[in-house]
Write a protein that binds this DNA or RNA. Structure first.
Lengths: 336, 336
DNA sequence: CTGAAAGCGCTAACAG
DNA sequence: CTGTTAGCGCTTTCAG
C-alpha cells in the first residue's frame, strides 16, 4: 500500500503529530527536526492522503463548477478562468453539466455536498423557487451564482452587466436607423438573458422615437438561432435588424438568414452577445457585445474562496463586469 | 453539524453497522429493519459523507480529465462525453488544464493522487520520457490516454484513427488535382497530430504521381493557424492546397488567406480536422475530417471505470475510432 | 440477521 | 518543542 504518515514517523524516529506539524509548516517544530522529517518524507516519496485530511478538517480543497453545458464556448472560457484560479490556490475543480435541468442540478449539488466540496460556482436554472433557494442555502456550502436566479440576498452573484449590454445593442441598432427590430433569445426566465432583453427593450422604449421590438424565445444554441430566425422570417419578414442574445444563437441566425437568401448586413443587421473567439471569423464578422468571460470565472472562484475561508454566513457579494460593443461587419445603417 | 450515520442509528434503535448495511443495500439485513432505517434516514435528511467512506474504501468515486485547454472546442466536447458517462456511473469529474506543460501535468497528477481519484483521463504532453512513464505508472492509478504519448504497453489509449484521417485528407487533395500541397500542424511530437501528418505524407507519397508536402509546425489554435499561413505564403506562395491539423487552425488559416487576398477555395483549398460544430458555419463552410469527440470522451470513461473496477494491473486496452471526410465548400478541383 | 470493535490516515487539543 | 490521545464518519471483520 501507499506509504503513510506513520511510516515517515517511524523512519524519522518521531511521533506522527510531529510529522504532521513539520509537513504543514506550522510553527512549534524545531528547525532541525523539520528538515530531518522532510528529508525522510522525500526519500520515502511520501504523499499525504488528502481524503484523510479532509475527513478531519472538514474541507476537501475542491470546488465545483456547475454549468448548463461546457460545450458552450462561453462556459468553456469561464471554466478556464475558474480552473486557473482554483489551481493557483491549490484547489480542484469538479465539472458538472446541468443542461439547465432543475432536477439534475439538485442531484449534482447533493452529490457535491456528500463529497464536501468547499464551494459551488453555478450557472443555475433560473427562477429558483423559494423552496429551492432554501434547499440550496440549507446545504450550508458557499454558492456563487453566474446569473440572477434568486433574490439578491440569497446568494452571491457575479456576471456581466447584461442589462447594460442589452441597452448598448438597442441604442446601436436604433442609431443605425432600424425601426423593425427583433430580439431572439433563450428560454424565458433565464437570468442573464432576461436582463439583456430588459435593457434592450428599455433602451428602445426610451429612444427619441420609441420602438417596440418583437421578442421570440427558443433554445440558446446554434440550432435555436436557426429555428427562431425561421420563425421570425415567417412572422415578420420586414424585420431589418436582429439582436441575438448570444453569439451561438447569432451564428444560427446568420445561417438561417443566408439560407433564406437574405444578405447580411445589407438586408438585415445582426448583433450578438458574448464576443466568443469565433465571432471574429465567421462571415460576416459578427458585431457583438463583449463580456469578460475568463475574468468572470476567475473572480467567481476568488469570491468563493473568500467565502469558504470565513465562517458560515456572509452577506452575499454581487459583482458586475462592464461590457462594451465590438463593432464588426454584421450591422449596417438602415436607409429606407 | 451535519447529521451522521450515528444519528440515524440512535434514532432507529440499531447499530451503525446495520445502518451502513441497510443503506448500501447489501444482503444480510432483515427487510423490515432496512425499511425502517431507510425511513428514519430520509426523515432526518441524512446524507452520507463520501469523504469518510472514501477513507475506508480507498476509492473516491471521482475521475479526472486532464486536457491541454478546455477552451479548445474539441476538448469541450470530449469533456462533455466524459462527464456524461461519469455522471451516469455516479462518479465526479475533476477538470485540469495542462497547457501541454510537462511540469504542470505532473503536478496535477500528483495532486490528483493525493485526492485518490480512481482514474485519470489525459491528453498527455507527447513523447513522455521513459522516466515519466515510470513515474505515472508508479502512482498505480488507471490512466487512459487520449493520444499516443507512450509505448503501447504502458497505458490504455483511445483516440480517433488519426493516421487514416490524414491519409483521407491527402487522397482527397491529390484527387482534386493539387500538387503544391502544405500541411500546417501543431508542435512536433504531439501524439495525435503526428499521426495525422504521417498518414497524410504517406498517402501523398503512395499516390500515382507522388507529392511531397511542405510541413510547418506551430501552435494548435486559431492564432497558430494565422501565423503558419502567413509563413507559408511567404515561403511557398504557389501553394494550392492546405491541410490544417485541426479545425481551429484551419479557421486561422482561412482568416490569414483572406486577409492576404486569396480566395477560398478558388485560389487555395483548405481542409481541416475535427469537424467541430462551427466548421459548418464559417465562410466558406469547412471541408474536414470528422472524428467522434463525444464518443471518445464517453468511451474513455467507460474503460477507466472498467480498469478501476478490477485489480491493479490490466493489460492496456487500445481503441481507435473511425473517421470520415465531410465535404463542404473549402476545397475545389485544381485546374492549372 | 445484528452488534461490538477495530481502524482507514490524518489533525488537533492537551499534556509534558 | 514533542508525544499521547482522541476522534473525523464510515465500512468491515468477527462474534454472537
Amino acid at each position: 500500500m501507499a506509504i503513510t504518515i506513520k511510516d515517515v514517523a517511524r523512519e524519522s524516529g518521531v511521533n506522527v503529530s510531529t510529522v504532521s506539524r513539520a509537513l504543514n509548516g506550522e510553527y512549534g517544530v524545531h528547525a532541525g527536526t523539520r528538515e530531518h522529517v522532510l528529508a525522510i518524507a522525500k526519500r520515502l516519496h511520501y504523499r499525504p492522503n488528502r481524503v484523510a485530511r479532509g475527513l478531519v478538517t472538514g474541507r476537501s480543497h475542491s470546488l465545483a463548477l456547475v454549468v448548463s453545458d461546457i460545450r458552450n464556448p462561453f462556459f468553456a472560457e469561464v471554466a478556464r478562468g475558474a480552473e486557473d484560479a482554483a489551481y493557483a490556490a491549490d484547489y480542484d475543480l469538479v465539472l458538472c453539466n446541468s443542461d439547465l435541468d432543475a432536477e439534475k442540478q439538485l442531484r449534482y449539488v447533493q452529490s457535491l455536498m456528500e463529497k464536501r466540496v468547499d464551494g459551488i460556482l453555478m450557472n443555475s436554472v433560473a427562477a429558483l423557487s423559494k423552496k429551492q433557494v432554501e434547499q440550496l442555502s440549507g446545504f450550508g456550502v458557499p454558492i456563487v451564482l453566474l446569473n440572477r436566479a434568486a433574490p439578491r440576498n440569497a446568494f452571491s452573484t457575479i456576471s456581466a452587466d447584461n442589462d447594460a449590454g442589452g441597452a448598448l445593442a438597442g441604442e446601436y441598432l436604433w442609431k443605425l436607423g432600424h425601426r423593425k427590430i427583433a430580439h431572439l433569445t433563450g428560454p424565458r426566465h433565464h437570468g442573464n438573458m432576461t436582463d439583456r432583453a430588459e435593457g434592450f427593450v428599455r433602451s428602445l422604449a426610451e429612444a427619441r422615437k420609441p420602438v417596440k421590438p418583437v421578442i421570440l424565445h427558443g433554445k440558446n444554441n446554434f440550432q435555436g438561432g436557426v429555428e427562431l430566425a425561421d420563425r421570425l422570417l415567417a412572422l415578420h419578414p420586414d424585420t431589418t435588424a436582429i439582436f441575438a442574445a448570444s453569439d451561438m444563437m447569432a451564428f444560427g441566425v446568420i445561417r438561417a438568414l443566408m439560407d433564406a437568401g437574405r444578405r447580411i448586413p445589407e438586408d438585415v443587421s445582426v448583433i450578438g452577445f458574448d464576443n466568443v473567439e469565433l465571432s471574429a471569423i465567421v462571415n460576416p464578422p459578427l458585431t457583438t457585445i463583449h463580456q469578460p468571460r475568463y475574468e468572470i470565472g476567475q473572480a467567481a472562484v476568488e469570491i468563493l474562496l473568500r467565502l469558504a475561508g470565513r465562517g458560515e454566513h456572509q452577506a452575499p457579494e454581487h459583482r458586475l463586469f462592464g461590457v462594451h460593443l465590438v463593432e464588426r461587419k454584421s450591422c449596417l445603417e438602415h436607409t429606407s
